[in-house]
Design a binder for these strands. Structure first.
Length: 83
DNA sequence: GTTGAGCGA
């Protein structure tokens, strides 16, 4: 079973991962929420990942691509696995 | 501001 994870881009730098979770909890049960930051500089990269407990939740979230969060239209796509 | 980590054997 693979994870139901989505990529979330165009994030406003002011939000936290828990804010993201609150936003995506509307689409389904959120299993994990992550905000990515550069490990060498410690600065935000402006994107993150959200995994859902069910495929339906992920699917619904992807359909919400372009929904605004803090005034910014989010870029949502199914995440690609790390290599 | 766009697809994540870590550094052991």
């Amino acid at each position: 079973m693979s994870e139901n994870k989505i990529y979330v881009g165009n994030l406003p730098f002011r939000i936290s991962k828990e804010s993201l979770e609150e936003h995506f909890a509307q689409f389904g049960s959120v299993a994990e929420t992550i905000i990515i930051s550069d490990r060498e500089t410690g600065r935000s990269r402006g994107f993150g990942f959200v995994s859902f407990e069910t495929e339906d939740g992920m699917n619904t979230a992807i359909k919400a691509d372009g929904s605004e969060l803090d005034g910014r239209p989010l870029k949502i796509n199914q995440a690609q696995a790390r290599n």
